[in-house]
Design a protein around this nucleic acid. Structure first.
Lengths: 166, 166
DNA sequence: CTAGATGCAAAAACTTTGCTCTCTG
DNA sequence: CAGAGAGCAAAGTTTTTGCATCTAG
């Protein structure tokens, strides 16, 4: 198992962003707003919710409405460019699908999310599905853990509503 | 791996339901409404959302408000009696925790949810967490699959919002 | 040019809460 | 009997939508 190498951020705003290229491949009409949202998503190294995407987009260029962000992430999800996640907290989070198959370990004390991949798990998942009579078309694995602590510090009070991203 | 043996439904409405007993163990004040909700949850073999619980409770006894259902499932979740799940669809689903550790395979064509357990996976999950420097305190595994079909029938149109429980 | 995109504000969907009255322990 | 719980309706959040107006291809 190796922790994932994150895709290096795109070269500073020249040319199409990583996600924009995927949109074009899918034959999507590229408006200014879509390009903007694509760029925000390409540069994100966390798992932003719609609000996050909206705020970051506005920070780059004040020309997008929240409704468009909702419509766009939904479209990108349908095209397989984004994956919707739910780490609790009531909002959907989004994760670019081109980062490759990976899973999440959520630190229950801090809410931090760590991504990782594991070939042994991939194989096991396929095997489990097959044993139930299915072929695997997708999967979702989240581990919740507590740091094995070399330096025991009083842990902060637990949140009521699960993880908040790093 | 064995598909889980579901807990047999409680003997027809005599005495405390399975979930009610857990509530009592936790020292919860047992009102008529809580008993009713506990019974609905004890008898459920699927993963009802709040609406489902509410409707089923009303069907048994017309004496509960939706607000109480929300408050109760939240309470039971905090007490560790229920687990909140999200299979997509925008609503939280609930799963009695006393069924033991298990996972879900969602049939992407029908939305049916199959539960299963797998010891090999449990071990692997612990190992993955340890390798990242964490001790495992919880986990969530969902597989999405398509039936390996001995009789190819045109599949129904896919839903927009993921799984609907069986 | 025209199908599809956007903005805005209204509405829908889901969940929580304030307050008063009720009931369990 | 006191403190916790229930009901109801109002308010909060998050997400979707109708419609008039733009715009990429």
């Amino acid at each position: 198992m190796e922790t994932r190498t994150k895709p290096r951020p795109d070269a500073p705003d020249q040319g199409a962003s990583r996600i924009e290229r995927l949109c074009i491949e899918q034959g999507l009409k590229m408006t200014g707003q879509r390009r903007l949202i694509a760029r925000v998503l390409s540069e994100a190294e966390d798992h932003p919710d719609v609000e996050d995407v909206y705020r970051r987009a506005l920070a780059l260029d004040n020309k997008v409405s929240i409704a468009t962000v909702y419509r766009t992430v939904r479209l990108l999800e349908e095209k397989g460019i984004l994956e919707r996640r739910d780490f609790g907290g009531g909002r959907a989070r989004y994760d670019p699908a081109d980062r490759g198959q990976h899973h999440h370990l959520i630190d229950v004390d801090t809410g931090k999310v760590i991504e990782f991949a594991d070939e042994e798990f991939e194989a096991l998942a396929r095997a489990m599905a097959r044993r139930l009579g299915f072929s695997l078309v997708g999967q979702r694995l989240e581990l919740f853990g507590r740091k094995i602590d070399p330096d025991p510090t009083p842990s902060p009070a637990p949140r009521r509503r699960e993880a908040r991203d790093a």
